[in-house]
Amino acid sequence: MSVIKKTSTKIGHNPVTVVPYIKSYADDPYFVKKANEAREIIAKYGLPGEKKNK
């Protein structure tokens, strides 16, 4: 039998808790892939307000 404890939620300002054991994910393939996709889109279409040759 398993017991699932409900994670507490809050309302209002949510200060972030700093903890030492957070994994960086800087080299995680998924986040690297998403960042590369974003770079491609921006390289191709520019940023809001920029004129880009398409």
Binding site: T7, S8, T9, K10, I11, N14, V16, T17, V18, V19, P20, I22, S24
Partner: peptide, 8 residues
């Protein structure tokens, strides 16, 4: 309503 979040 939101969850508690954590960072380094």
């Amino acid at each position: 309503e939101h969850y508690s979040c954590f960072s380094d």
